[in-house]
């Protein structure tokens, strides 16, 4: 396409938005709401998911050591554990590390519990290769000298996985619902613009403008609406997730909840979705309009 035509079309697309700014604004508002709700859902479900991944002890077992086990003894225990064939992964997590993590969250509340007074046990986090051999492996582990107890979280893990799947389903449902609503909104907005410009369209058709050319300003309009909405809603999401993060840190520092908030990838994906929706919405609405060959002389 020639540069002149390109400049002309872009200008027209911008004009479309401003020429019926009330509709544009309304649809941007609705789109922002849709995207925001969708984003919140995704954030929520991702954080539940991540949390579960951590809690997730599907093949994860924690071994608590007796309080009097020295670090040399712990080394020996680790070697023993490594020798068991069904163990795929074994990681030492000292009570000092544990208390360090909690005091980061709780501040000086934990000060008095550091060093000798630390009530927490040293632990090993363990993963098994084959869960069907769980009982035998657990038995071997519990018989190692210095091991106080094993914490079996398989039951919890299973239940959490169920919850996780439910949330996933709800998430998919919500995303689809809002996708449909968003497409409807964009295509409707463009239809309004198109109605306002039907005389121009009829002239374009009468002088032989291609459908592609007639479409482009409207598609640009859709893309811009999608882009702006995505920008605004990811701003809101960022704000919301920061607030949620702050609150979470305050009230439940002990839980393993992981809340990442909005990151750059998500923002980019959002913008992309906005643009794609704008594009598709635009295409849908114009197809309907242009499919009628008429409206050259007929328009009165």
């Amino acid at each position: 396409m020639k540069l002149d035509s390109f400049l002309y079309l872009t200008k027209e697309g911008l004009k479309n938005i401003f020429s019926n700014w009330v509709t544009s604004l309304t649809s941007i508002t609705i789109l922002v709401c849709c995207l925001f709700l969708t984003g919140s859902t995704i954030l929520f479900s991702t954080s539940v998911n991540n949390t579960l991944d951590v809690v997730e002890s599907k093949n994860n077992l924690t071994i608590h050591l007796l309080p009097n086990v020295s670090s040399e003894d712990a080394k020996k225990i680790e070697e023993k554990i490594q020798k068991i064939p069904n163990i795929s992964h074994c990681e030492f997590y000292s009570k000092d590390q544990a208390i360090q993590k909690y005091s980061q969250a709780l501040g000086n509340l934990m000060e008095g519990l550091k060093g000798e007074d630390n009530p927490l046990p040293d632990v090993f986090h363990i993963r098994m290769l084959d869960l069907s051999k769980y009982d035998e492996t657990a038995k071997i582990l519990s018989e190692i000298e210095g091991v106080e107890s094993l914490s079996d979280r398989r039951e919890i893990a299973k239940r959490l996985t169920d919850v996780n799947q439910t949330i996933k389903l709800v998430e998919i449902g919500i995303v689809i619902l809002f996708a449909v609503v968003s497409l409807f909104i964009v295509s409707n907005t463009i239809r309004v613009t198109m109605y306002g410009r039907r005389m121009e369209i009829s002239i374009m058709k009468s002088v032989g403008a291609t459908n592609f050319f007639i479409r482009l300003p409207f598609i640009i309009e859709g893309i811009l609406i999608g882009f702006v909405s995505a920008l605004i809603s990811s701003g809101f999401l960022k704000l919301l997730s920061n607030i949620v993060l702050k609150i979470l840190r305050k009230i439940i520092p002990f839980t393993n909840i992981i809340f990442d908030g909005v990151n750059a990838t998500m923002t980019v994906v959002f913008l992309l979705i906005g643009v794609i929706f704008g594009f598709v919405g635009g295409v849908i609405s114009i197809r309907k309009y242009l499919n009628k060959e008429g409206d050259v002389i007929a328009l009165q």
Binding site: E200, V207, G208, V296
Partner: peptide, 17 residues
């Protein structure tokens, strides 16, 4: 569209923007 470029159409209602 290319077919229509061979003709010019004049409307009763002028159809000026």
């Amino acid at each position: 569209p290319y077919f229509r470029r061979t003709m010019g159409i004049v409307f009763q209602d002028f159809r000026l923007i």
